[in-house]
Computed example of a mutant assay.
Amino acid sequence: MTRFRKTPPKTICLIRLSALGDVSNVVPVVKRLQQVWPDTRIVWVTGKAEHSLLKGLAGVEFIVYDKSAGLKGMREIWKQLSDTRFDLLLHMQAALRASVLSIGIKAEIKLGFDKARAKDWQWLFTNQRILPRDKSHVVEGFYDFLNTLGIAPERPEDMEWQLPVSQEAIEEARQKCPCDRYVVISPCSSDRARNFRNWTLDGYVDVVEYLYRQYGLKAVITGGNRDIEHHYAKEIMERAGTPVLNLVAQTSLQGLVALIRRASLVIAPDSGPVHFANAVNTPVIGLFATSNVQRTGPYKWQQWVVNKYPEAAKAYMHKSVEQLSWGERVRHPDAMELIQTDDVFLKIDQLLADHSRQP
């Protein structure tokens, strides 16, 4: 798509409603747009929780879509944007809800994913598609919007990744966690049907004790306000024979990012915090067995993931990774038990040794 190389678009609308980890991975795309086209107006339509993560991102106008409002919420957005015809719509969410929302947003060019990555019939709602890429990471899918527009840096990792963190969030993190050396452990992933991504309580207890006794690193447990997250934090605190700070449901999203930014290490399953750590360049060990690291792992820290996806595919799907469709999940409640504590200890030792040598 060469038309914008000589004449930048005056207005861009971007649709990415969710999820938190994916939204954090779109921020580098926005920053690249601003760097190359500094005079372009950028409007980002996103979800309510996602906006609380993104607010303060300089030079971006946010329109918040309340997903619980359904079609009524969409009509309100369409009314709000009724007087604007965008030069370019970046449809960066291959989901039916986002596609229906895109119908009422006027744009000359509606750029979406190539057909292989355009799930939920997204290609029916766009008039241009990004360049195809076989077996891509989610980050590479976002990067390919820039690539198609002819403004991408040489590699995805060359983009600017930092998430917005307000001074208020920094102070919040300092007040909640005044210690200087700690590890953020976010033990639970989001609540989705048949999406078994949480590791075992026994494993987390062993890791918490190992971090403190071997490295003097205190565990800080984070998470949302669901019963399972409170249960995990309570059990870890009661069973671990070392100090633990429980901050479950006690931080804002930007406060969590500020907390992660100061941490020595983050340990979490396939969930938002591994991507937040990636975005602020904090070392992160992802715990993966039900999802493909090469598609959804923390992009710049994939080599440090404890990856049991191939073993889970073989044990519970009776297939190799190559025989599965790209990104297919292993939906078995026992899959994460393939991760052994020694696997995590080894990654901790290797990563902390390697990171201590970095300037």
Rank of each mutant, 00 (worst) to 15 (best):
L53R: 06
Q34E: 14
T46W: 02
Q34D: 08
H51I: 06
W37T: 13
P28G: 09
R32W: 04
G56H: 12
I42S: 01
P38E: 06
V27A: 02
R5P: 02
V26E: 00
R5A: 09
V30S: 01
V26H: 02
P9T: 11
T40Q: 10
P28S: 11
T7W: 08
I12E: 00
I42H: 00
V60Q: 03
L14V: 15
S52P: 02
V23T: 10
K10I: 08
I12S: 01
P38I: 12
T7K: 13
S52R: 13
I42L: 13
A19V: 06
G21T: 08
C13I: 14
I15F: 03
R16P: 03
T7M: 10
N25D: 05
R32C: 05
K48L: 14
L57H: 12
L14P: 00
V36Q: 03
R16L: 11
E50K: 04
Q35V: 07
H51N: 10
K31Y: 05
Q35N: 09
G47C: 08
I42V: 15
L54E: 07
P9N: 08
A49L: 14
V27D: 00
A19N: 13
V45D: 01
Q34R: 15
K31I: 03
V26W: 00
A58Y: 11
W44K: 04
P38K: 05
P8A: 11
R41K: 15
K10L: 11
V23Y: 00
K48V: 13
H51L: 13
R16E: 04
K48T: 15
L57G: 07
L14K: 02
V29R: 00
K48W: 10
A49C: 07
C13F: 07
L33K: 01
W37N: 06
G21V: 03
L17C: 06
T11C: 06
I12T: 06
P28D: 08
V30W: 00
I12G: 00
G21I: 04
P28A: 12
V60A: 07
Q35K: 15
S24W: 03
K31E: 05
G56W: 09
T40S: 13
I12L: 07
G56L: 11
S52C: 07
W37P: 04
K10C: 06
G21C: 10
L33A: 03
P28T: 13
S24G: 10
L57D: 09
Q35T: 12
I12M: 05
D22K: 03
K10E: 15
K6C: 05
V45Y: 00
L20R: 00
G56F: 10
S18V: 09
V43P: 00
K48S: 14
C13P: 02
V30I: 15
S18T: 15
I42R: 01
V60P: 00
G59A: 12
G56S: 12
V45M: 08
